[in-house]
Structures are given as C-alpha cells and as structure tokens.
Amino acid sequence: MVMKNNGIKIAVLSGKGGTGKTLISVNLASVAEKAVYIDCDVDEPNGHLFFKPKNVNSEKIAIKMPLVSEDLCNGCRKCVDFCKFNALAFIKNRPYVFEDVCHSCGACLLVCPEKALTEKEKIIGEIKNGISGNVTVNTGILKPGEESGVPIIKRLLENSKAGEDLLTIIDCPPGSNCVVMESIKDADYCVLAAEPTIFGVHNLNMVYELVKLFNKPYGVVLNKCLSGENPAEKFCIEKNIPILGRIMFENELGELNSDAKIASRESGKYKALFSSLLQSVVKEVRHEAAVNP
C-alpha cells in the first residue's frame, strides 16, 4: 500500500545540538516525492549547507520597537508602570526603552494618553527560500546578538502554509525553550532525535516532556547507534515511547555528512533507510489521525 504523506507536518527536535536533527530532517525531506524543508534553528541554520538551494529569495524580518517622542511625552509614566516585561525605565522625567527586553507587544502605545509613543521597525534577521531538486528549502536566520528568533519562526511557518498540500519537515532549534515551542506548535508529529549516552537520555527527557505537554504524537529515532547497551533505547522502552528507526554510527555516513552531502541522495542504502523511516512516521501520523481525529 502506498501511503500518502501530503500535508503532513513533521517536526524534528532534540534536547541538545549535535544529535542529528538536521541529518534526519534533510534526509526525510529528500526521500519524499516532494517536500518543504523549514530550518527553524535560526541561531545557526545549517540545512541549506546540504541542500545548496538555487533561485534563492530573501526577505528581511523586522519587529516593532516603541519610540518615545520627547515633544509629546508629558512624563506621566503610565507606559513604564504598565510594561509587564520591565522594558521601560523612567529617569529624569522621561521613559527609556530597553530594546533587548522589549517583547514588541505594543501595550505602551495603547496606555499612552498623549500618543507620544510610536513604533519603529528593527530588523532582526531574514528568511531565505530556494529550491533543491524535490525540496523547497526555507531558512530562518537570526542576526547575531538579537534576543529571540520567535518572530522569524512565526513568519517561516506562516509562509509555509502556501505549501500545505506537501509534506513539511520542520528542523527545530536544540533544547526545549520558546523557539522550540514555536517551531512544533503546528506540527502533526514530533520526531525526537536521541544519542546513545546518559547525557543524551537527559536531553531526550527534556523534549519528551515538552511534546507530552503539547499533546503531540511523538516517536524517537535512535541515532549514532553502536553495539552494546543503548541508554536512549532503554529509556524509550521504559517510557513506552515508539522507536521509529535506528541510524548506525558509521564512517560512511559521517563522511557524507561532513562533506555536506545528503546521504539519501548519494547512496541507495541510506535512501532505503530514510524512506523506511519516513514510512514509519507517516504510518504513525495516519494511525494517530484515525485514533484521535
């Protein structure tokens, strides 16, 4: 039976960097008939290094920052006292904005009785999209020094709605913080990449708790598997977490990866491995959709 994978959104995440999120994401997208790949790891996106997309378009992403007009401000201090994020201070009768603390919520503009606050745009990064064979590649890039990649991720996922009838692979940032939550918010399924170490289990547990909190269906890919005991596998068995597939720790894959080549495009063996992984994930998603429509 050929399973349709159209319109499914799969997020790939892990508690720490270097577990294989990008390896898995890039290859899952590559083995699909047609797919959209979204790199939400905006602090250091690297999926594009593998895809080497062509016809790249770029769009700057800006957030809004309050701007105080000293002519209009009467020093009533309402904005400073209202700000939930403590992003404003009131010194020598005028408000100061702390841009790295501001969440661009716009509340200060609303409470100002003198309309002394306006908004200016502040560029925090960009998104790029291009084509690599069967894959549309979308990359979010946060400017170094900027606080939060959330606005970039929001735009990336919004833009991807155009390709909603395609399989979408979301390559998440590492960890379990705001940017990860934003990245998995609309995902139909979460693939957790795990390393076979005690440290790896600790980090796996973090994302495991996150996807449970978000009520997302999930499964684990055991990466860098060696012979002998795998603490991550033990963890999955104990917690009854579905194991979607195993990727062995082998030179061939390491070399392809360090040459920025896409394993499933270079070797039949890896094409088979990742095709079967994609099938397992799609099957899980279909099962989930049937059980919890």
């Binding site: 403590n86 992003a87 404003l88 201070a89 702390f98 603390v101």
Partner: peptide, 18 residues
Amino acid sequence: SAAASQGGAGIKAAQAIV
C-alpha cells in the same frame, strides 16, 4: 517587587532605587 519578575528584574529594581 522586581524579585518575582519574569524578565527585566534588574531594570525594575534599578527603577525602585532611582
């Protein structure tokens, strides 16, 4: 009162000092 802030505690505490 800044002690319980989610973020920007230093700014709020400094404001209280000012």
